[in-house]
Amino acid sequence: MKTFTPKPADLTHDWYIVDATDVVLGRLATHVATLLRGKNKPTFAPHADSGNHVIVINASKIALTGNKMGKELYSHSGRPGGLRRDSYAELMQNKPERIIMAAVKGMMPKNRLSKVQLDRLHIFAGEEHPHTPQKPQTFEITQVSQQGK
């Protein structure tokens, strides 16, 4: 069996829009990571950049399960003394985009290609986004959180 390698002409970068209202963080992150890598396409190859652009709206309405509101999100700048820690409750108020970005980044492969693919992730706390001229397709996540109801 031969390894499939897509030609550069075969690679298309589609636009998808995902509504994060009442969706559990982990479930949202897995779907978004799959779309960013292009694993939903029949021309997927792990070494080729066949990923899509993903717009996540309503990031402030995401559902966190368990006791995550009491936990903290750690990040390090790489510089001495650059450890940063913020509680999830504080981030939900001020910068909910960072919660989704950290979750999706953890589900991407640890290589140079994932940086390029993560740059195609656009997260917005509210309903409005400036990417309407690209005509994004809606991607529906059917399983929403039971806590939000």
Rank of each mutant, 00 (worst) to 15 (best):
M101S: 08
T21M: 04
K110T: 11
Y16K: 04
M108T: 07
L91D: 07
D22G: 00
A102M: 08
H53L: 00
F44P: 11
H129Q: 05
Y88H: 06
G70S: 15
K110A: 14
H129T: 02
A29I: 04
G126K: 05
A48F: 11
K41E: 11
G66M: 11
T30I: 13
L28V: 05
I17T: 13
A63H: 14
D86G: 02
G106L: 06
L73K: 05
G26Y: 07
P46F: 14
S75T: 15
K115D: 14
S87F: 01
T21I: 04
A103F: 09
L121I: 01
V32D: 12
L113G: 10
N94F: 04
V24H: 01
D49G: 10
D19N: 15
R84D: 07
A89I: 02
A59K: 03
A20N: 08
G126P: 01
R112W: 09
Y16A: 01
K61M: 09
W15Q: 10
N111Y: 07
A20G: 08
G26N: 11
V23P: 10
N111G: 06
G82M: 04
A59D: 03
V56R: 03
A102K: 14
L64Q: 12
E128W: 00
L113V: 09
A102T: 06
R112Q: 12
Y88L: 02
F124R: 01
H53W: 05
V56P: 07
W15H: 11
M92T: 06
A102C: 08
S60A: 15
T43K: 13
N111P: 07
G82P: 03
K68P: 03
E127P: 03
A103H: 06
I99S: 05
N40I: 10
E72G: 01
T34C: 09
A48T: 11
D86V: 06
V116L: 13
N40E: 14
V24C: 08
L73N: 05
T21F: 00
M69N: 14
S114T: 13
G78F: 03
R37F: 02
H131I: 00
R112L: 10
I62D: 12
M101W: 01
Y74C: 07
S50P: 08
Y16V: 01
E127Y: 00
V54C: 05
S114D: 13
K95I: 00
E127C: 02
